[in-house]
Amino acid sequence: GSVVKEKKEKALIEVRPYVEYYNELKALVSKISSSVNDLEEAIVVLREEEKKASEPFKTDIRILLDFLES
């Protein structure tokens, strides 16, 4: 629970300088966080969101995924 939350919060802070739609990304992460149990599940849902998103938000999600998977 809290470790996953920390990882996601740290990821958002780390990617902030590189993303165009930070507030939207943060809102998406919050929405996903409330419906998943762990980081792996969150990553799966983020990948689905990435497929549906259009640029440049798609790239923002990709940047976040790269950080979460590192």
Rank of each mutant, 00 (worst) to 15 (best):
G1R: 01
S2H: 11
V4G: 13
V4L: 14
K5T: 13
K5M: 14
K5H: 13
K5P: 06
E6P: 06
E6L: 05
E6M: 03
K7V: 15
K7P: 09
K7I: 15
K8I: 15
K8W: 15
K8H: 15
K8E: 15
E9N: 05
E9D: 14
K10I: 14
K10P: 09
A11W: 15
L12C: 09
L12M: 05
I13Y: 05
I13T: 12
I13M: 10
I13P: 01
E14A: 15
E14P: 01
E14V: 08
E14I: 08
E14Q: 11
E14C: 15
E14N: 09
V15E: 01
V15W: 02
V15L: 08
V15N: 00
V15R: 01
R16P: 04
R16V: 06
R16Y: 08
R16N: 03
R16G: 07
P17F: 05
P17R: 04
Y18P: 02
Y18G: 03
Y18N: 03
V19F: 01
V19A: 02
E20I: 15
E20V: 15
E20G: 07
E20M: 15
E20T: 15
E20S: 15
Y21Q: 09
Y21C: 15
Y21E: 07
Y21L: 13
Y21W: 05
Y21V: 02
Y22G: 02
Y22D: 01
Y22S: 03
Y22V: 02
Y22Q: 01
N23D: 14
N23Q: 12
N23R: 06
E24N: 03
E24R: 07
E24Q: 08
E24L: 05
L25H: 00
L25M: 01
L25E: 00
K26T: 14
K26I: 10
K26Q: 11
K26G: 03
K26W: 05
A27C: 06
A27N: 06
A27V: 08
A27H: 07
A27L: 11
L28M: 04
L28H: 00
L28Y: 01
L28S: 00
V29L: 08
S30A: 12
K31R: 13
K31H: 13
K31C: 06
K31T: 09
K31N: 07
I32A: 02
I32Q: 02
I32G: 02
I32T: 04
I32K: 01
S34P: 03
S34N: 13
S34F: 06
S35G: 09
S35P: 03
S35M: 14
V36P: 02
N37E: 09
N37H: 09
D38T: 14
D38W: 09
D38M: 06
L39G: 06
L39A: 06
L39H: 07
E40V: 11
E40T: 09
E40F: 11
E41T: 08
A42I: 15
A42Q: 10
A42N: 02
I43W: 06
I43F: 11
I43K: 04
I43A: 05
V44F: 10
V44S: 07
V44D: 13
V44I: 11
V44P: 10
V45I: 10
V45R: 13
L46A: 01
L46H: 00
L46C: 03
L46V: 01
L46F: 05
R47T: 08
R47N: 08
R47C: 10
R47G: 06
R47L: 09
R47S: 08
E48Q: 12
E49L: 03
E49M: 03
E49H: 09
E50P: 00
E50D: 02
K51T: 08
K51A: 13
K51L: 11
K52W: 08
K52Q: 11
K52F: 07
A53Y: 08
A53N: 11
A53Q: 08
A53L: 03
A53T: 10
A53K: 04
S54L: 11
E55C: 11
E55L: 13
E55D: 09
E55Y: 12
P56I: 05
P56W: 08
P56H: 07
P56G: 10
F57R: 01
F57V: 03
F57I: 03
F57N: 01
K58T: 04
K58G: 05
K58L: 02
K58S: 13
K58C: 06
K58Y: 01
T59C: 12
T59K: 14
D60T: 03
D60E: 01
D60M: 03
D60H: 03
I61A: 00
I61S: 00
I61D: 00
I61H: 00
I61T: 00
R62Q: 10
R62G: 12
R62C: 11
R62E: 03
I63D: 02
I63E: 01
I63V: 09
I63A: 03
L64M: 06
L64S: 00
L65Q: 01
L65N: 02
L65T: 14
D66I: 13
D66T: 13
D66P: 01
F67W: 11
F67D: 02
F67A: 15
E69F: 07
E69L: 08
E69C: 11
S70Y: 11
S70K: 12
